[in-house]
């Protein structure tokens, strides 16, 4: 038990270091890039002439030219990438916990007729949580375009990411349909509403089985 945990921790540490290296190189490139194009693909980087890095100039302080928004965007991307990658288990648990707690409280209040909000408003924590997951997934997928991306397991990883994307969309579809039905916007059968949920559950079971038999 202890040994396992140590192994996991050391692996995590290695991963974090790798990501930090990636981020450092990326940040340097953001700062070093000429003002015309700040978002570049890794394949183009090697052919470009390296310009002098200037650590005193921060991307958001540069003059408002056309490229500043691009710079800001790539800076933001780097920052959020760092943020998501460095989230520990406790932080992710906290995120999930807060959103489920708020949702449960709002659900109880609505069901007990203490508040008379729209159902779409009650589901606000669910929308927020799904949006965060989607953003996280997109940021991770954008991480593929980084310099020094390891192409090993890339196809496998991509398949997984696509499945996650589909899963989030299925979940969104289910909750949207459920809200619509609860608000009496449509009167479709509950069975049709549940179809995305069933697809999601079956997919989750397949993934669970896959994880058990392939690792």
């Amino acid at each position: 038990m202890e040994l396992n945990r140590d192994e996991i921790m050391s692996k995590k540490g290695e991963k974090c270091e790798q990501h930090e290296d990636l981020l450092k190189t990326q940040e340097l490139q953001i700062r070093a890039s000429p003002s015309s194009q700040s978002v570049r693909l890794p394949s183009q980087d090697s052919t470009d002439e390296p310009s002098q890095p200037d650590p005193t100039v921060r991307p958001e302080e540069s003059e408002p030219t056309v490229s500043s928004s691009e710079k800001f965007f790539s800076f933001w991307l780097g920052l959020s990438y760092r943020f998501w990658m460095s989230m520990s288990l406790a932080q992710r648990v906290l995120l999930t916990w807060i959103f489920s707690l708020i949702f449960l409280i709002m659900l109880v209040l609505k069901l007990d007729d203490k508040i008379h909000w729209n159902w779409f408003l009650v589901f606000l924590p669910v929308w927020a949580f799904d949006t965060i997951l989607l953003l996280m997934l997109i940021v991770k997928m954008a991480g593929r375009c980084k310099p020094g991306f390891d192409p090993r397991n890339a196809a496998d990883n991509l398949k997984k990411r696509v499945w996650y994307l589909v899963a989030i969309l299925l979940k969104l579809a289910f909750s949207l349909l459920l809200c619509a039905r609860l608000e009496h916007l449509t009167e479709i059968f509950l069975s049709f509403i549940c179809i995305p949920l069933w697809a999601l559950l079956i997919g989750a079971m397949v993934e669970l089985g896959y994880n058990v038999f392939h690792f």
Partner: peptide, 27 residues
């Protein structure tokens, strides 16, 4: 997605088989 399977098993304290069982029940 947010958690890997190993993290889930560690966190929830349930074995993978039990998670599977609950998923089937939910379905």
């Amino acid at each position: 997605m947010l958690f890997s399977l190993r993290e889930l098993v560690q966190w929830l304290g349930f074995a993978t088989f039990e998670l599977f069982l609950h998923l089937v029940a939910l379905l």
